[in-house]
Design a protein around this nucleic acid. Sequence first.
DNA 1: GATCCATGTGTAATCGATTAACTACGCCCT
DNA 2: AGGGCGTAGTTAATCGATTACACATGGATC
Lengths: 321, 321
Amino acid sequence: MKDVAQHAGVSTATVSRVLNGHAAPTPETRERVLAAIEELGYRPNALARSLRTTSTQTLGLVISDLLNPFFAEIARAVEDEARSHGYCVVIGNADESAEQEATYVRTLLDRRVDGLLLCPATDDPSLVREVSAGGVPLVLLDRTVRGATCPVVRADGSEALTALARRLVGAGHTRIGVIAGPPNTSTGRERTDVLTAALGGVAQVVHGDFRQESGSQAAAKLIDDGATALVVMDNLMGLGALGEIRARGLQIPHDIALAVFDDQPWFPLLDPPITVIAQPTVEMGRAAARSLLALINGQQPDDVRLTAKLVLRGSCGEAEL
Amino acid sequence: MKDVAQHAGVSTATVSRVLNGHAAPTPETRERVLAAIEELGYRPNALARSLRTTSTQTLGLVISDLLNPFFAEIARAVEDEARSHGYCVVIGNADESAEQEATYVRTLLDRRVDGLLLCPATDDPSLVREVSAGGVPLVLLDRTVRGATCPVVRADGSEALTALARRLVGAGHTRIGVIAGPPNTSTGRERTDVLTAALGGVAQVVHGDFRQESGSQAAAKLIDDGATALVVMDNLMGLGALGEIRARGLQIPHDIALAVFDDQPWFPLLDPPITVIAQPTVEMGRAAARSLLALINGQQPDDVRLTAKLVLRGSCGEAEL
DNA sequence: GATCCATGTGTAATCGATTAACTACGCCCT
DNA sequence: AGGGCGTAGTTAATCGATTACACATGGATC
């Protein structure tokens, strides 16, 4: 920057003013400075700028698993929304591990992100408290924690789950296997509670860990126990369950019915296409980014609760009803 | 930091030494400092540190599309490898747009990443030159550019493509549709060249843009033109092609054979399972990160060329051979 | 012509760390 | 006792920007 100033025959203050579009500099000074910048190929050092202004124009996003298309879509939406407001997004991968999540959150705070978007791996509120104590704007996404004091953005699947339960019971299923998320995540618990309540006792629940492998294992156990329908609470576990069903040569929906929480672009391609509860991922990501930006600007955004929708495609024997 | 120093009755220099594990401080001084840090909940400001040391311990990764599981896997692998060496990764989404790619690259350079991993959207070398001119370590991933002067990490699909071509021709296909990537990407061109050469004239090529929608359109066109086999050069376009095939009620492989470049976890679940050319994505990501770290440490890593493998599953009528 | 204001630019402090150069304090040896 | 030396710790410069404040210039006003 000093070089630019010298080249243009002005002080660094003036260069800075030109850079930041301040009113002061004369059009001709501005021209000279811009020419010098161009000539020297100067690019301002964002670190120094941030150090001085205490603003990085950066949002942190900590998710549980980038390989889960659900989170990838959310990440993408967050990024789009953030960019359109001049912010960058740094993504951290917690790998469904609370420890790694904490490490990432701290790293992001050390780098002074202007705000943090978090999909908590567990419902333990201590990390959230730590962030809040540091005074960093925070929004929870998809999942919440016990006694959360910050805005939360999530999808409500209660209606869809209830409708699904009604349909399964109506179709005569009396042994319905539920492959749930970990009981220490809010989504894992809530979805399961709603569904089992709606199923009224014919449900058998096995908890997985939101990963493919646990989906296969849970499916194997439930099928062994005589389940005639499977409801899977996450798309990766759904993939695992599907694999197990195929491996056993079972026909959907004749031998076993299947429904999955989270839609995927390839679900319609299966035979039969998979019935799902689709979450508005893009809208969730965008809403979360918007809430966080509002928080950063000193506003107090409300919680956002979007609605997940039941999409019937055939894998629950819809045609037979 | 000043507060910590005061609290512990030492100077900031000493605090800094404790933080960075320098030899100097006495065990008891160290204790006092650590206690003060703990008590005040002090966390060092990474911006200030980086400004002084000109090292951010951060790698930039610019990819074309986070929603493409191929890139998501690569991103994940890069991140793992980087983290195990104490580096963070900032991911930028270029959305297959050269313009956005450039914007992201510049943003990352402004933030002084220690090195850059780039999957170039086009084979235009100007952006690469710009980065190199800035003296920032750079490694290309998956795709290369014309006259690249930096290390490149990619997968070689020539053998697999040739084997696939032999098999298709051997099965009697005389009208083989190729859904290729954009001709201005190295992977788009190279894969297509190898395949058409091996097919020896029975190929009809349509270029897509590595997105699902373009896959459907290309498939529609090729099927209309009487293709009895489709080779798709990317998994997202493969998804589109599959959709089109299903929409027309065609049976794989009886009515049309299909093979896709890039494996996906759900390909084996289709009926019949899809034959693919699988790229070693994880190894690519790790190798790229390793090369970049080597470059940062002043070494001169070689190009890495991994091998993509043909995985026969049935969608090309393998059983009938 | 002196006074005052507006306007454009420069000077220097500052953000929060790192680190070279220096000081102070013992300890040992002759 | 005094000189030399190693060690623990301090002082202050520095990284590259922003910005409050000071200053200079020129035109308007009386």
